[in-house]
Amino acid sequence: MRKVLSSKLIALFLVLLLSVSIFAGCGTDEGEETQDTGDGETTDKEETNGDLSGSVEADGSSTVYPITMAIAEEFQAENPEVQVTVGVSGTGGGMKRFTTGETHISNASRNMKDEEAAKAEENGIEFEQLTVALDGISVVVNPNNDWVDDISVKELNKIWEPDSDVKLWSDVRSEWPEEEIKLYGPGTDSGTFDYFTEAINGEGGAVRTDFTASEDDNVLVQGVAGDEYAMGYFGFAYYEENQDKLKALKIDGVEPTPENIGSGEYTPLARPIFIYVNTEHYNNESQVQAFVEYYMNNGPDIVPTTGYVALSPERYKEELDKLK
């Protein structure tokens, strides 16, 4: 009888010991997990992950917009508590906001102007310029245009120079139609406008005034697509997206393609495009830092999907290192 009782006591003791072990294992707060740090200690997983929240605001170039927007969509899918806003007010419009501290990031299709840098300094805004892609400004015509496939820089200058006397296509080449050229181009706040006018006319902002201008490249696409005798220009991505509605011209025999843009052969209209980052926000707001780092680390994969030419992974790292 005593032997049976002892066996029962031992069994009861083992059950109690197992219950204590299970209870101790459940001692962390509900909803939290622990993870091994690799040095024999464990830490709270939620604290280690540090979920991001807050907002990131970018504005500026319509040329850079497709890249920043594509990055923003992918970033927000992974960080749903961060709200990323991307505006399209043109490079100049974006710079006005950036240099007064209204935005974290400015999309730009040209270098910051001296007066913009002075405004930033006046307002205590420190920044860094990061190259994010290569673009080739595309000169486009209506797909029904069957008289021109190739145009020279000299002819573009003749068409677009200030006080140009070109009214008809035949004013450029006598064998072209005696029909009025309808011109479409970016507005004066656009970095593409500045770059094109300097490359073609020798001075940024120097251009004839009788053309339809818009900061929205989609308006320019629609204008050229809807008029057989139209000509316009804008970033390569907008041509790529609308190839069924437009025809891109060769410039002095060189076609705008990713290969020719990347090699620099598509001259003088191949160019780098940028984002400007407010370094104070980058250094002090984790969501801004995470977004910029995501932008540069994923540039090699995402930029080509937007129609632009990506830099090498090494080049993106070099650009990001400017902030460090």
Rank of each mutant, 00 (worst) to 15 (best):
N278T: 10
I67H: 04
E33D: 06
P66D: 12
D244T: 13
D216Y: 09
T305V: 05
P304T: 08
A117C: 02
N49T: 15
S89R: 01
D114K: 12
T192E: 06
I181M: 09
T279E: 04
R2A: 10
S55M: 01
D227R: 00
A24Q: 11
S138H: 00
S174Y: 13
F291V: 08
N49R: 08
E293N: 15
T305A: 10
N218V: 02
Q287E: 15
G264R: 11
F196N: 08
V292M: 11
G187C: 07
K322F: 01
L130R: 02
R315Q: 15
E241W: 11
S19D: 09
D321P: 04
K158I: 04
G307D: 03
G191E: 08
G93L: 08
P313K: 12
T48M: 05
E228S: 15
V166Y: 05
F236N: 07
A70F: 03
S21F: 11
F23G: 12
A72V: 12
E32T: 15
K182I: 14
A290Q: 02
Y195A: 10
W169M: 11
E33Q: 08
A199Q: 15
V221A: 04
M112V: 02
S152W: 08
T267M: 12
G299T: 12
E318S: 14
A206N: 03
F196A: 05
D217S: 15
L134Y: 15
V219T: 14
K119L: 15
T63R: 00
P258E: 09
I181N: 02
W147I: 09
L9I: 14
M231E: 09
N297A: 10
S164F: 04
D36L: 02
G299E: 07
G264Q: 10
L269C: 04
D217N: 15
T42N: 10
D194W: 11
F291R: 07
V292I: 14
G191Y: 06
G223A: 12
H281M: 13
K322Q: 11
F274N: 05
A118S: 10
D150E: 05
D51M: 12
I67W: 01
D59E: 01
P272K: 07
R110Y: 11
V303R: 12
E57N: 07
I67L: 06
E318A: 15
E47S: 14
D163V: 03
P272I: 00
E47F: 13
Y238N: 02
Y295I: 00
D227K: 01
N218H: 10
Q76W: 09
S152Y: 07
D244Y: 08
V20F: 08
S164M: 06
D321M: 02
Q129A: 12
L134D: 07
A11H: 06
E102I: 04
I137D: 12
G124L: 01
G307S: 04
D227W: 04
V224M: 04
